[in-house]
Computed example of a mutant assay.
Amino acid sequence: MSLVLGMLLDAIFGEPRVIWSRVPHPAVLMGQAVGWCDTRFNGGEMRQIKGVMVLLVLVIASAVLGWMLSALGWVVEALVVAVLLAQKSLVDHVQAVSQGLRMSLADGRRAVAMIVGRDTGELDQAAVSRAAIESAAENFSDGVLAPVFWFMVAGLPGLLVYKITNTADSMIGYRTERHEAFGWAAARFDDLLNLIPARLTALLMVLIHRRWDDWREIVREARQHRSPNAGWPEAALARVLDVALSGPRSYEGEMRDFAWVNGSGNRDSGPREIEAACRALWQVWAGLLGVAMMMWVFALV
Rank of each mutant, 00 (worst) to 15 (best):
A63W: 05
V75W: 09
L193T: 06
S21T: 11
V81Q: 00
R267T: 14
H93G: 09
A126E: 06
A78Q: 05
R267L: 15
L29C: 07
V240L: 08
R279M: 15
L56E: 10
S264V: 13
V116A: 05
W36A: 15
R239G: 04
A236T: 07
N166I: 09
G158I: 07
R47M: 11
P233H: 09
Q87M: 14
C278P: 07
H209E: 11
V112H: 03
R249V: 08
M68E: 12
R130D: 04
R178A: 14
S141H: 06
G14S: 08
A236C: 06
R47T: 11
M295H: 11
G35R: 12
L3C: 06
R210N: 13
I19G: 01
V128E: 04
V206T: 15
L8E: 08
M293T: 13
V59W: 06
R109A: 07
V52L: 13
G231H: 04
F140M: 05
R279D: 15
L69N: 05
R220Q: 14
P248F: 01
V81R: 00
E275S: 14
R175W: 13
L56C: 14
L5R: 12
R118T: 03
V59K: 01
P228H: 03
Q32V: 09
A136K: 02
W232E: 06
W285E: 09
F151R: 01
T176G: 13
E180Y: 09
A96C: 11
E180H: 14
P147E: 06
V243W: 03
G35H: 09
G117D: 04
Y251A: 05
F140T: 03
D268G: 13
A280T: 10
R178K: 14
S62C: 12
T120G: 02
F298N: 11
L84F: 11
M152P: 00
A202K: 05
S104L: 04
A235Q: 02
R279S: 15
I196R: 00
L241W: 01
R102N: 15
L84N: 00
L29W: 05
I49A: 14
V64L: 12
C37I: 07
A292P: 04
R272I: 14
W282D: 14
I12V: 15
G43L: 10
D191N: 02
A168F: 01
S62I: 03
M294Y: 10
L72V: 13
A127M: 12
W184T: 00
I115Q: 01
D214N: 10
D124L: 10
E254R: 13
I196F: 07
L79R: 05
P233S: 08
Q99D: 15
E217K: 13
D38F: 03
L65H: 01
I274S: 02
R178I: 12
L160I: 01
M295N: 12
V219E: 14
L204V: 14
V57E: 07
L237D: 07
D190L: 08
W232F: 13
V28T: 11
G287S: 02
A131E: 03
F298G: 10
G290V: 12
V28A: 06
F298I: 14
I133F: 06
K163P: 02
A168M: 12
L85A: 03
E221K: 04
A168D: 05
D257R: 08
A33W: 06
P26K: 03
P271Q: 08
A61G: 06
L207H: 05
G158R: 01
